[in-house]
């Protein structure tokens, strides 16, 4: 729904390095007005004009959802990534004007839960910061288990343990501390919902363990944004738009479609929401599916692609767009 996505002009009003990898950015409305409220777990898509390239990267909102004066995000620098986080870390200054999207939530709390059990790994802490503020304001019951490499890289560990000494449990990998997951899940009261945000390995570990222990699928929530990966350049043809162009090495297929002036739908830009699903009319080569939206049989069929994260290797791919 890119065509109808509401955008907001903002100014960067604060930049705070938290540790050697993570920096926090604060945005306020450029027109001085109030920002929309949102629900804990929501993200915003940040537009970055990086030379010739326009990047649109999603970041979880970590500020208090009820605070309409400013949004904050925390960005982990990814030196091996395509450059979105590097751009924010290196090029953005206080006072810069930027464009962000209205909040979108693909990782919402299930408000029926009697208890919210949160499991975070590394930078995956950010959506929980907003959710905890939301729950604290409404007397919601939560418990956070937060694994990070060490004290120095543990963003917000001190804030969280000070504000919620009885609800926050921290595990430092370098100290050999590890979450006793089976024991944790075994002791939860009926009506507990699990939320996981972190590396893929952690998400799979918690989901598999919960499933093995008989947790209902509906009670296990997770968010994993995939960053689009670089790859070999390839040629794409858009049948409806009658356009043919190259997708660059560090460009996603979706970004290339947008750069060609075609307004394609999207929401999460991370292979999760399904909004950008596109029909493949012809593919002389191999589609490299990287999303977790399409079912396995859909991926094998070669008839669908998620252009936000997936790529192609071969002579040409023709899309129904």
């Amino acid at each position: 729904m890119s065509a109808g996505t509401n955008k907001i002009g903002v100014v960067v009003t604060d930049i705070v390095p938290l540790n050697e990898l993570v920096t926090r950015f604060k945005f306020e409305r450029a027109d001085g007005g109030l920002l929309p409220t949102f629900s804990g777990g929501a993200h915003t898509v940040i537009e970055m004009k990086d030379g010739e390239t326009t990047r649109l990267n999603p970041y979880s909102l970590m500020s208090d959802p009820a605070d309409r004066h400013a949004y904050t995000i925390s960005v982990r620098r990814d030196d091996a990534g395509r450059g979105g986080s590097l751009f924010l870390h290196k090029n953005v200054r206080i006072g810069d004007e930027m464009v962000i999207s209205y909040p979108v939530n693909l990782f919402a709390l299930d408000l029926r839960a009697h208890k919210h059990l949160m499991i975070a790994g590394g930078i995956g802490i950010t959506p929980f910061l907003a959710q905890i503020k939301q729950l604290s304001a409404t007397n919601g019951r939560f418990e956070l288990h937060y694994a990070c490499r060490n004290q120095a890289l543990g963003s917000y560990v001190d804030d969280l343990t000070t504000a919620h000494p009885n609800n926050v449990h921290v595990y430092f990998d370098d100290d050999g501390q590890a979450l006793d997951l089976e024991n944790l899940l075994d002791g939860q009261p009926l009506g507990t919902h699990i939320y996981i945000c972190g590396p893929k390995g952690m998400i799979n570990w918690v989901r598999d363990t919960a499933e093995r222990l008989g947790w209902p699928r509906e009670a296990v929530h997770y968010e994993e944004f995939l960053a689009p990966q670089s790859g070999k350049p390839f040629t794409v043809k858009l049948a409806k738009s009658d356009l043919e162009f190259e997708v660059g090495e560090h460009q996603s297929l979706l970004e290339a479609i947008e750069a060609a002036g075609v307004d394609a739908p999207y929401l999460c830009r991370g292979g999760a929401c399904g909004q950008c699903e596109t029909d493949v009319l012809e593919a002389d080569g191999e589609i490299l599916h990287r999303d977790h939206w399409l079912e396995d049989d859909e991926k094998e069929s070669g008839k669908k692609i998620m252009p936000c994260v997936s790529r192609f290797e071969g002579r040409i791919i023709v899309l129904d767009r």
Binding site: M1, G4, T5, N6, P36, F38, Y102, P103, V104, G274
Partner: peptide, 11 residues
């Protein structure tokens, strides 16, 4: 349903 699930704030 697919349309509705993707309705966003302010839209």
């Amino acid at each position: 349903l697919k349309f509705l699930l993707n309705i966003q704030q302010g839209m």
